[in-house]
Amino acid sequence: MTLLKYSSGQFFPSIAEGQVEVALHEWRENPQVHADATALVISNDENLADLVCDISGFDTVVLEYPSFLDGRAFSQARILRERLHYSGEIRARGDVLRDQIAFMVRCGINGFEFADGAASATEAVAEFTNAYQAGVDEAAPIWRQRHRRARAA
């Protein structure tokens, strides 16, 4: 398993930094005991809409893909980025398919525990030039590009 990090269209292999992990429910019950934890592991049945505590102190939030068919973490990632304004690393763990990485990036995930290498992941996110929807990434949705172009013309 390689750990990959994503930034502006590129994936880089990275060394797992020996983070101290804690599960969300354990940390919520007793934050003092877990004061040294650096990575928060959120299982995919956690309801983040109810999350009132401040998670900005964690370097990493880990989201889980128990099976590549289970897409709950896509929504969790967007909520973390767009509603809770979490700006650290969001890492996908589990059964991650190459063909899902582009979607993950668009939902704000930027760390991947992924069997294939960085080259394969970089290729996968380059498969589509544009997207119809606004995502968490920097790409402008197609409708915005259309109207930028129309105004420039």
Binding site: D70, F74, S75, F103, M104, A131, Y132, Q133
Partner: peptide, 13 residues
């Protein structure tokens, strides 16, 4: 149609 095409969040429902 456009919004739902390759929706990053809702392709693995």
């Amino acid at each position: 149609r456009q919004w739902s095409t390759l929706h990053p969040e809702f392709s693995w429902l």
